[in-house]
Design a protein around this nucleic acid. Sequence first.
DNA 1: GGTCGAAACGGACCGTGGTCCGTTTTCATT
DNA 2: AATGAAAACGGACCACGGTCCGTTTCGACC
Lengths: 204, 204
Amino acid sequence: MDLPLAPGGRELPLLQRERPERSDAAHNREVLLRAAQELVEERGIDAVTMDDVARRACVGKGTLFRRFGTREGLMGQLLDHSEREWQAQVIGGPPPLGPGAPPMERLLAFGRSRVTLNLHHAELIEAARHPAARSFGALSFTTMHVRYLLEQLGVQGDVPYLATALVAPLEMIVLRQQVNREQVPLERIQAGWEDLVRRVVADH
Amino acid sequence: MDLPLAPGGRELPLLQRERPERSDAAHNREVLLRAAQELVEERGIDAVTMDDVARRACVGKGTLFRRFGTREGLMGQLLDHSEREWQAQVIGGPPPLGPGAPPMERLLAFGRSRVTLNLHHAELIEAARHPAARSFGALSFTTMHVRYLLEQLGVQGDVPYLATALVAPLEMIVLRQQVNREQVPLERIQAGWEDLVRRVVADH
DNA sequence: GGTCGAAACGGACCGTGGTCCGTTTTCATT
DNA sequence: AATGAAAACGGACCACGGTCCGTTTCGACC
């Protein structure tokens, strides 16, 4: 072996800034995402194969996989899009979900909204799972937000943990169990969460 | 259409007891489960293919799939085994996990135990997911148990919901986020859950 | 022990997710 | 405009999950 130079052995451009995406790459990503989106809407997620997506986008399969890594990665990107829209509502939309309302009202609005969102996206969430990137983004944004609101409310204790604990019952897998198996009506879930929040926030 | 008889229209053997499993079927199920178990232990779950399992068990692939339906089904069975052992501890083992200790102590022991169990089985739980049967068994046993303990404690409110909400932060997906991504130490998770329980149970 | 229907067997076969690698495109440099 | 290397393309190819169906085995009844 004969490595050209030990890493760090020369003054490479120290802040190796990543090149902007090549134009064909950018174009293909857009086309692929649109194709995937359309197909999912048309037939439902399970009836969409990766070959379908590539074909509809008039792009090679290799390209599809290079861009998104796996099927989960592709679905994750689709999900991320709506997720980001929702996040924008939370960060900058109208109250009570967005800023402007008192923290407790925001928190309750957050819970109601998150329940419906997660149930709405159940299929996508399921199809997206794993891919290191996603779960990170989603779980941690919600947790951070709740954490922030709990701090506003002056809650004492291990606030980061409490935030996680409050977000947990809003997770799709839990909601799904309640709605599908136990036939719990939506309103009861939302009311139940509200009660939970009040218990957790109540000062002792 | 010409249905033979409306359901209940004739005195069919009323308690249509399902025939006992044929001996070859029973034998093969055992052999397959053992093979799967061994392979998973040897190489880790991801490196075990269904063909591997069938081959090791000296059984046709068709048989494997007829017995367990899907890969998830097979892994689900593996999981169910340990799950049942744990359930036995909860139902009839020594206190404080089992009966005999005061409800609050049992509840806290339950949480601690469940955290380690779910983290321990993370891989299997992930591989087992879906298959209608499993998630049912696991989620609902734990929820029912917590619900029972909350009732013992005289908690007021929507106890079934509260039980679900307390179980949720113990779910693998949530724990995993905390342990792997946020590097939260185990003890803090357990302490956090304990605090959560006290807040929920506290009478107002 | 012989007969027969139901149930189980097993392995060839198929569809889909994912990889590999020779070819084409882009774009910075001149 | 020409050049060249890095990056992207695309489709043949592979492996694994899951199905199908002709063959074998079981066991209840004679």
